[in-house]
Amino acid sequence: MTDNKEKDSQTRRDFIVLTASAMAGVGAVSFAWPLVDSLNPSADVLALASTEVDLSSIKEGQSIRVMWRGKPVFIRRRTADEIKIAQTEEVSELPDPENDKERVKEGKDEWLVVVGVCTHLGCVPLGYAGEYNGWFCPCHGSHYDTSGRIRKGPAPTNMVVPPYEFLNDNLIKIG
């Protein structure tokens, strides 16, 4: 009889201790989450996560550079020649095969938008330079073509095309 009573009270004790300890654990984790989340980008940083750019002043054959999320972005208005060369390259022979069509918006292929950071080690390439008339990175000699694709040199992949959309014919939103 007393045995059962003891077992009961032991079970009750174990239950309460277990529940209480679980509560303590939940509390500790809930305390930790805001601390961890506070390191994520803050509201003011997120507010600058997109940039709108007015394209109306960019002439054909001209390129501008804007800042987006702390990095340079090249916006190039390509000439007909540049577009033709970019589109007629043999894609399978490229170091990082990618079709020019995949790197521009449909119907807007005169506009090339790429993040101006060399995919090798992060330097900013120079425009209208190099053997392919795209960009040339002076740090270690990577050459990019008029579609921002790597053609020669140590960079492994094409220049990154950031997410962007046309809000109207003269305005794009990056990010």
């Binding site: 805001p34 601390l35 989340d37 506070s38 390191l39 994520n40 803050s42 509201a43 003011d44 940083v45």
Partner: peptide, 29 residues
């Protein structure tokens, strides 16, 4: 964690604390 967002310069200190309060996730907390 506060020290990760605070700036100890007399021109910026007050605003860095307001930044924590308003913009940093759970900064006010």
């Amino acid at each position: 964690v506060l020290a990760m967002h605070y700036t100890p310069n007399s021109e910026l200190a007050f605003s860095s604390v307001e930044n924590i309060m308003r913009n940093v996730n759970y900064g006010w907390l």
